[in-house]
Deep mutational scan, measured.
Amino acid sequence: SFQYVPVQLQGGAPWGFTLKGGLEHCEPLTVSKIEDGGKAALSQKMRTGDELVNINGTPLYGSRQEALILIKGSFRILKLIVRRRN
């Protein structure tokens, strides 16, 4: 089963996490790295392996390109929903 975790990061880029996968690579869009001391790490809500399913209220369909555009369009606040295996 899965758990959906809301994450809100503040203060602008860099957000402190790296993505891998996506439709382009025929795999889920997941968090591959969280930078020590970065905003994602400080939130204590994101983990490597989390799947990104929503950015700023926009549902994602797995495209890494789409996710990067939405993330780049976030100035002060980035709201994410990640899906994690229980």
Rank of each mutant, 00 (worst) to 15 (best):
I77R: 11
G37L: 07
E66R: 10
I81W: 07
G21P: 03
I71V: 07
G62D: 08
L23E: 11
E66P: 01
D36Y: 11
G16H: 01
K33P: 02
P6G: 10
A67E: 03
L60D: 01
N54C: 14
V7F: 14
L68H: 14
G16W: 05
G62Q: 04
G57C: 10
D36Q: 12
N86A: 09
E66S: 09
L9Q: 11
H25D: 15
T48W: 09
I77L: 12
Q8F: 15
K39L: 09
T18G: 10
P14I: 01
N56M: 03
V5H: 06
T30M: 11
L29M: 02
P28I: 08
V82I: 12
L9G: 04
T58H: 12
T18S: 14
I69W: 10
R47E: 13
K20E: 14
F2W: 09
G12N: 07
Q44M: 12
V7L: 10
Q8C: 13
G12Y: 01
I69K: 15
F75V: 14
L19C: 03
S63T: 10
G38T: 05
S63L: 07
G57M: 05
G38S: 10
G49I: 03
G49F: 01
L80H: 04
R84N: 00
R85A: 12
I55S: 04
C26V: 05
A40R: 02
G37H: 07
L19S: 03
Q3S: 11
P28R: 04
R47P: 06
Q10T: 14
V82K: 00
L68A: 13
S63G: 09
S43G: 08
V7D: 08
F17I: 00
L52I: 14
G37P: 01
Y61R: 15
T18R: 10
G11Y: 01
S43R: 03
V31S: 01
R84L: 03
V31M: 02
N56V: 06
E51K: 07
I71T: 03
L19N: 03
V7I: 14
P14G: 00
C26P: 05
V5Q: 09
G62C: 01
I34E: 01
E35G: 05
W15L: 00
C26T: 10
G73A: 12
Q10L: 13
T18C: 14
F75L: 12
A67Y: 02
K79N: 15
G21Q: 00
I34A: 02
G21T: 00
G11C: 06
V31L: 09
S63W: 08
H25M: 14
G12E: 06
I81T: 13
I71H: 06
E51G: 03
T18F: 15
K79D: 14
L68D: 15
T58E: 09
V7N: 04
S32K: 09
A41G: 09
Q10W: 06
G12T: 04
P28V: 00
E51M: 04
G49N: 02
G22Q: 00
N56E: 03
S32M: 08
I55Y: 00
K39E: 01
T30E: 11
L23Q: 15
V5T: 06
E24Q: 08
L19M: 07
V7Y: 01
G22E: 00
F17W: 07
K39Q: 06
T18P: 01
Q65T: 12
P6F: 11
A40Y: 05
E35T: 12
E27W: 07
V7M: 15
L23Y: 09
N86I: 13
E24R: 07
K20I: 08
Y61T: 15
I81G: 05
S43V: 06
I81M: 11
L80T: 02
L29I: 09
A40P: 00
A67F: 05
G62Y: 00
G12V: 03
Q65H: 11
G38I: 00
A41V: 03
Q3D: 14
G21L: 02
G49M: 01
S1V: 09
T48S: 10
A13D: 07
G57E: 08
T58G: 02
P6M: 14
G73T: 11
